Computed example of a mutant assay.
Amino acid sequence: MSKRILVVLSEFGYWGEELVGPVEAFDARGYRITFATPTGQRAQALPPSYDPDYVDPPLGRSVTTRDMARKVREIDASTRLDSPLSLQQLIPERPYFSSLNHLRELEEYHRLRDAAVGDLVAGFDALVIVGGSGPIVDLANNERLHEVVLGFAAADKPILAECYGVAVLAFARDLETRASLLQGKHVTGHPKEYDYKDGTGFVGVDFNMGPPPYPLEYILRDATGPDGGFHGNVGKETSVIVDHPFVTARSTPDSAPSGELLVRVLENGLRRYGW
Rank of each mutant, 00 (worst) to 15 (best):
D51M: 04
L100F: 15
K185I: 03
M68R: 12
V205F: 14
P245E: 09
G118K: 09
L19A: 01
V8Y: 07
L160D: 05
S239Y: 03
N233G: 08
R113W: 05
L112G: 04
Y164V: 06
G274I: 07
A122L: 15
Y31H: 02
P226T: 15
F246H: 05
R66N: 09
Q89D: 11
S258K: 05
L160W: 10
E267V: 13
R113C: 06
P57L: 01
T39A: 06
L120S: 01
M68N: 08
L145I: 12
N142I: 07
V242H: 03
A223Q: 08
L19G: 01
A25W: 05
K3E: 10
P22L: 05
P253E: 03
A36F: 10
T238N: 13
Y31P: 00
R111F: 15
A155S: 05
G123L: 07
P58D: 00
Y50C: 06
R250D: 07
F26Q: 08
L270A: 10
V242K: 01
G210R: 02
R29L: 14
V265P: 02
R73E: 11
T224V: 11
G199H: 00
N101M: 12
R94Y: 06
P253F: 03
G225Q: 07
T238I: 15
A170R: 12
A249D: 04
V121S: 08
L85H: 06
V187H: 04
L139A: 01
I5C: 10
E107T: 07
Y273V: 06
Y196K: 02
E18Y: 11
E237V: 13
R29C: 09
P58M: 03
V23C: 08
L139R: 00
G118A: 11
Y273G: 08
F246D: 03
E237F: 13
G269H: 04
P211F: 00
P212Y: 00
F246Y: 06
S258T: 07
G274L: 11
